[in-house]
Design a protein around this nucleic acid. Structure first.
Lengths: 224, 224
DNA sequence: TGTACATCAGTGAACGCGCGTTCACTGATGTAC
DNA sequence: TGTACATCAGTGAACGCGCGTTCACTGATGTAC
């Protein structure tokens, strides 16, 4: 039943966005009394929290599946750079099929409402999936020297990026860590600009641009 | 009077975000009857449209001022790369002081609500201001060969990016145009991630990272 | 097999709220003669 | 200088709406003896 409520609520968010999600409309769709939902959720905010978490988990699952599939495929001869593309593509594909959920994660925060603490874990999983080919290429000694790794990094910058390095990149050159964070920035930016409609009349084929951009990021990080 | 209404409404958006903007609360702040606002605006949506446009104009103004100041300063000996930093910094500074307005422009679109057509013009002005140092460096023949310009660009990508090239970069190498669009993507992504709270516990000093990232973009485009 | 009772998912009426929008109006200010 | 009239910014009451949340309740199902 909880699952059924979530399914309907998820559909509402997908159709109209989170702002107009209401307990009453969900109840209506389920042909229940609004008060019945209180048996399953503490109120509207609790339902919204569950949906946000849901979106994070869904995206994380997608990212991990793509990373895993690419890792399997890489047993056949394939370059690291080609393998790298899998997760960004999966993120973009998910965002295009779930634009409102993407907005829930990366868009304007709902005012006066704090995202639940549990989003930290799936968020880290998304980042880890993205970065997995880089980590594995580095471990195998296949990361091109002189690219990200060779770059000078100030002490300030190194300190700023320390949590990322400790969380995702044990024993990785700082230069590469910085590049990876920048890659994350670019990917999220590219997807958000597309999903939120900012390429309209500007970039005619966002898919082509996205592909080129992510390829570029690969070589920036020293993947070949 | 129209200006006064806008000022109050702007403050409401700044304080609580666009979602909770209401005619009644604006009227309350002005100590007027709600109906009085109808003399100045056609309704809530019209007011919101005005505010969105307002935000675009404000950001565009800021970007142009920064571009102009940097152009003046560049008469003294200064590198193109250093000059390039001015506009990204201004965009970030504006976003940090006007987070909700940034969200109005680059965040989740308000559902069921189309941004007014007049946003196209200020949007273009922002992009033009950002890109001005690149255009001028190219015109002066100071753009480093082999960087952006030398890059191979597929026909598809060239076509995808044609409106940008025609609008902002007359007679510019396509490679540079693509790099500039990617720079835009990265800058917007970096600011949005910071403003929307996604660096929390991840990147400890977003300013340092932003600075490093934008510097990197300069060399990517062949600015020296 | 039959009775008494507990559980608990879901009901339905009611609450108070703030909202956008309408409409007939008031009353001060300015203009014409 | 004085009167009649037009203008128009702003009023205030009212409308209907959908919302989140509460509360006492019903009635089917399962359990214990």
């Amino acid at each position: 039943m909880t699952a059924e409520i979530l399914a309907v609520a998820r559909r509402h968010v997908a159709d109209e966005g989170a702002a107009s999600l209401s307990l009453r409309s969900v109840a209506r769709d389920l042909e229940m009394a609004p008060s019945a939902l209180y048996r399953y959720f503490d109120g509207r905010d609790a339902l919204l929290s569950a949906l946000i978490l849901d979106a994070y988990e869904s995206l994380a699952g997608e990212a991990e599946a793509a990373a895993e599939a690419a890792a399997q495929a890489a047993k056949r001869p394939e370059t690291d750079a080609a393998r790298w593309l899998a997760v960004p593509r999966a993120l973009r594909a998910w965002a295009l099929t779930h634009p409102h959920e993407w907005g829930l994660i990366f868009g304007t925060p709902v005012p006066g409402y704090e995202a639940p603490e549990q989003t930290v874990e799936p968020y880290a999983r998304i980042a880890a999936a993205l970065v997995r080919p880089v980590v594995e290429a580095e471990a195998a000694g296949r990361l091109q020297a002189g690219a990200g790794a060779g770059r000078a990094v100030s002490d300030d910058l190194e300190a700023a990026v320390r949590p990322v390095r400790e969380g995702l990149f044990p024993d990785m050159p700082v230069g590469t860590v910085v590049r990876a964070v920048e890659a994350w920035t670019t990917i999220v930016g590219a997807i958000s600009l597309e999903v939120f409609g900012h390429w309209r009349n500007t970039v005619l084929n966002p898919g082509t641009l996205f592909e080129a951009t992510t390829r570029e990021l690969a070589s920036t990080m020293g993947l070949t």
